[in-house]
Structure formats: C-alpha cells, structure tokens
C-alpha cells in the first residue's frame, strides 16, 4: 500500500501520519505531483483556513493534480471542505470535486467552534463506516460545515444538521478527525485503506 499525505504546508500532518502508521502502513508526506499521482491512496489533511490552504495548493501547482486523481482520496476536516466548490471561510473557490458549498456552521447559539465528540448518523451506503455500530462517536473541531445533500454519506447535529462525511466518485471527505477519534476513527481509516473499485465507481 502506497499512501500519500499531501503536504499542504499549513496543516499539522503528524497525527494523521501516526494514525496511518498504527494501521501498519508507512505513509509518504509530499507535495510532489508525480508521487501523489502514483499513490494508491491520497489523504488531504487540513488545519488552518480554507483561503491559506488553497493559496498553498495553487503555489504548489497541485490544484489540477488533485482534481484529476482517480484513486481513493480522503479529505479530513478542512481537507474535506477543500473538496467542495467554494468556502465561506475567506470566500474562496476550492477544488470542486464534490458539488457542495462550505458555509459557516449555524449552531443556534451553541458555543463555537463545534469541539468534541459527536455521533455520525445516516451512514447507509457509506463504505468507510462499515463494521461500526449505530451512531458511532467521532471527534470534531470546526466552525464551518457543508449542508447535507445527495453527496452526504453521514450526518451530525450541532444546533443544525450538517454533512459529517461526503463522497463523490473516488473523493471522500470527513468533517471530523478520524486520526483522533479512537477505535472508531481507526476503523474508518482502515476501511479507507481497504475500499475497492466497486466502492468508488458510482
């Protein structure tokens, strides 16, 4: 298994790298287009702001590279938001591989950021939550979110319901941090390593 974590130059990649290593795979952290294109799996991590992350991806000339990837790609937290068309965090055009928009989370007066453990719901037809029980618990830290739509494969509620996971073809996004979500997150990452062509063809 050749897994690449894209080095977006602003994200904290360490905890994602360690989580993959705990599954027995040594990931490569790189911003090299050829290495990314050749990988079996690609993870787009995310900490920071959408505007800074997109600026870095453009400077690294990785925007067209990521858009054309055919292998399974997983965007985590901000990395998931970067997969959508646009983010309100800096009013910035994103990668546009999943038709959705990232807006400020409307939490009905609850504290923001949405920080802590919350449950995933409506996870049928989600190859990444296979083997998990009902309403598994995951760790979230975010103030922006994607509204649920036909690309949503898990939902979470915090004042409002938002998309906890999204998917279009081979592109997957998780709003939470699987690398920090205990055994549940570990299983989600393991499922990502093990998904088949059948899971990404439709």
């Amino acid at each position: 298994m050749n897994l690449v974590i894209i080095d977006t130059a602003c994200a904290n990649l360490t905890s994602v790298r360690f989580a993959i290593e705990r599954l027995g795979v040594i990931p490569e952290v790189t911003a090299d287009a050829a290495r990314i294109q050749q990988a079996d799996r690609v993870i787009l991590p995310g900490v920071g702001t959408a505007r800074a992350a997109m600026r870095n991806l453009q400077q690294l000339e990785l925007v067209p590279v990521i858009r054309e990837l055919q292998q399974p790609v997983l965007g985590i937290c901000l990395g998931m938001q970067l997969l959508t068309d646009w983010s309100a965090e800096g009013d910035v055009d994103c990668l546009g591989v999943i038709p959705a928009r990232t807006e400020r989370l409307q939490a009905a007066g609850l504290p923001l950021p949405h920080m802590g453990w919350n449950t995933l719901q409506d996870t049928t037809n989600n190859p990444l939550t296979r083997g998990l029980g009902l309403d598994p618990w995951c760790y979230f830290v975010h103030s922006f979110a994607v509204a649920p739509d036909r690309y949503t494969i898990a939902r979470t509620n915090y004042g409002a319901t938002f998309a906890a996971m999204i998917r279009n073809r081979n592109f997957f996004g998780a709003q939470f941090h699987p690398e920090r979500s205990g055994a549940t997150g570990s299983r989600i990452l393991k499922n990502f390593l093990e998904i088949t062509d059948a899971d990404t063809s439709t």
Binding site: T14, S15, F18, A19, E21, R22, Y139, V141, H177, E179, R180, S181, G182, A183, G185, S186
Partner: peptide, 8 residues
Amino acid sequence: VARLIDIP
C-alpha cells in the same frame, strides 16, 4: 504521546 494515543 502523539504516536501512542488516538484521542486529542
């Protein structure tokens, strides 16, 4: 610690 644990 980051290597060992899978919670924040």
